[in-house]
């Protein structure tokens, strides 16, 4: 009632005027269009090179198709974001993030700068270039409705504690992908560490103001669900806003032999070779 009293919508013309009067407002979480208008453009990035600028709501999701070579940076301004992330080859989405290969091939379970995010097809979808958080996770995936119902008493998608998987399923659907296309994911900004007996020690966040920056090694569909990590021990559904910026310049290229990271290990070198081979053959 109180809300309706603020609006005059008894005719089409009034309704139109009322709707149009709402434009131009700002929210704490919203996309910024054009991206160059982002109020949070990173200092080291030229605003006119931005192709994606958004603050993702706590409990929200976003998704974007990114050109090969795009840099994208995720920032956690409050220390409470948790960016559950899935990547797909935008040209052939059956090629997608493979968490097992992402941990196994580099012989390293914990994500950090230099870590390749691998597909199941022996290629690098994206490389983590920089990381000031160091608290990420590739073991626990995201939350399900069953988990959130247990933890928070509710997991309704329209409610206060939506589950990461449910958000991923919706984001995937908007690219023509179904539930079978949602594999295990990784999360940035909230981590666990594995103790000697295999139990997870909660590592949590490293605080406000950290960021990870990645480069798209292939054309990517990026899905992000910003929801609490499933092992977050707090009884409340706590998650903060997530900043996303992506940009392209003549200098933002996919990894090539000219980059030091190309030869960081024999495994990653062959992964980059496979990726370049695919891109060459497809004429990318």
């Amino acid at each position: 009632m109180a809300l309706a009293a603020d609006h005059s919508t008894d005719t089409v013309l009034n309704a139109r005027a009322d709707a149009r009067a709402q434009g131009g407002q700002v929210s704490d979480w919203m996309p910024y269009l054009p991206a160059s208008s982002s109020p949070f453009c990173p200092e080291d990035v030229a605003a006119d090179s931005l192709t994606w600028a958004e603050t993702v709501a706590p409990g929200g999701y976003t998704h974007k198709v990114l050109a090969r070579g795009t840099r994208f940076r995720l920032e956690d301004p409050t220390g409470e974001a948790c960016a559950h992330t899935l990547l797909y080859n935008a040209l052939e989405p059956t090629e997608r993030l493979n968490v097992a290969d992402t941990q196994k091939i580099p012989w390293q379970a914990y994500l950090g700068a230099g870590h390749p995010l691998l597909s199941g097809d022996g290629r690098v979808l994206a490389t983590i270039l920089t990381d000031t958080s160091g608290r990420h996770d590739a073991f626990c995936g995201t939350s399900t409705a069953a988990w959130n119902a247990l933890r928070y008493g509710t997991a309704l998608p329209e409610g206060p504690a939506p589950a990461g998987r449910d958000l991923f399923v919706k984001a995937a659907a908007k690219h023509g992908l179904g539930p079978a296309d949602v594999p295990p994911s990784v999360s940035f900004f909230q981590g666990v560490r594995v103790a000697g007996d295999g139990s997870f020690d909660w590592f949590g966040s490293s605080g406000a103001g950290t960021a990870v920056e990645l480069v798209a090694e292939l054309p990517l569909i990026v899905l992000i669900a910003n929801v609490p990590h499933p092992r977050d021990p707090r009884p409340e559904y706590v998650v903060g806003p997530l900043r996303v910026h992506a940009w392209r310049t003549p200098e933002t290229n996919p990894t090539t032999p000219a980059d030091e990271r190309f030869d960081a290990s024999p495994e990653v070198r062959r992964a980059y070779l496979n990726t370049l081979d695919y891109a060459e053959a497809r004429g990318l």
């Binding site: 691998l118 022996g122 290629r123 496979n274």
Partner: peptide, 13 residues
């Protein structure tokens, strides 16, 4: 954790 081997990932390893 270790996943499955594949023709493709074998080329990396």
């Amino acid at each position: 954790i270790g996943g499955a081997c594949s023709r493709e990932s074998n080329t990396l390893r």
